[in-house]
């Protein structure tokens, strides 16, 4: 029995080393840009680089657009599948899992063949068209997570009963969605949004093949040409991921909880 506990500690500590050493090493490396002393110059170099600023803000804009488009697609679909068409549920859920089954590189390859300049919908012919395509690609990447987050939110509040209760009290459909459903799933919606951000912010494959200068592509460029800045970028990226996931954890505490019988 005692021995079992010892083993648990050994395994845990070895695991912790594997996961924490690279983080420490990266941070340590990022401080060594000056030969004689530690400094944050690598961070300053990155943050002051106009290409970083452009790429990062572009990524944020595309990420925000993907969140908005994703929510517009997912919330009504998830709501109606729960409420009106539960028999569609398997089909819709299967669709939401497709992005996990089809690797991103396959998706973007398909896009390039389908939306090139000589196709019926030549999205790739213009800059704006490419931006739109990148946004939609990110919507696809985040779809499993977004749908799951919203659907979980709907499940915990028991849409059916709430809608019926509101109906009996005389509320119309618009009021129900705006005043009853949405306030109850806002936490789930925000979780979905932060997850989307975490996935999209450092994405490389799709953006690179669509020739979009996003944060991920910028990082790859820096990685190929600089020594210490990549470590600074990795630290920044880890902080962003940690922040987005932390927000989700924080939000989970505010999630509405209703008793359910099943």
């Amino acid at each position: 029995m005692k021995q079992g506990k010892l083993w648990s500690w050994v395994i845990f500590i070895l695991g912790a080393l594997y996961f924490l050493v690279p983080l420490y090493a990266t941070f340590d490396f990022s401080l060594h840009i000056r030969r004689d002393h530690l400094s944050f110059d690598a961070y300053a170099n990155v943050l002051n680089d106009p290409r970083f600023q452009a790429a990062f803000s572009y990524s944020l804009i595309i990420g925000a657009a993907a969140i908005v488009v994703g929510l517009l697609l997912v919330v009504p679909a998830a709501y109606y599948v729960r409420l009106r068409a539960p028999h569609l549920r398997p089909i819709i859920e299967f669709i939401t899992l497709l992005p996990l089954i089809i690797p991103a590189i396959i998706l973007v390859f398909g896009y390039i063949r389908m939306y090139n300049t000589s196709s019926l919908i030549p999205l790739l012919g213009t800059n704006f068209g490419s931006d739109v395509l990148l946004t939609l690609a990110y919507v696809a990447l985040a779809l499993p997570y977004m749908y799951r987050a919203v659907d979980t939110g709907l499940r915990t509040i028991d849409v059916q009963t709430l809608t019926e209760a509101a109906n009996i009290l005389g509320a119309n459909q618009a009021t129900i969605i705006a005043r009853v459903i949405f306030p109850n799933i806002i936490v789930a919606v925000l979780s979905g949004a932060f997850l989307t951000l975490a996935i999209v912010i450092g994405e490389f494959t799709i953006a690179s093949l669509l020739n979009r200068q996003v944060f991920g592509v910028y990082m790859q460029n820096v990685g190929a040409n600089r020594a210490y800045e990549p470590s600074a970028l990795a630290v920044i990226s880890f902080v962003i991921t940690w922040g987005a996931m932390g927000m989700i954890q924080l939000l989970a505490r505010f999630a509405p909880k209703t008793a359910r019988l099943d």
Binding site: F204, G223, S231, L233
Partner: peptide, 11 residues
Amino acid sequence: GIPLAFAFLAT
């Protein structure tokens, strides 16, 4: 993705 590769290069 990219940052993970950087982290392991630094390690």
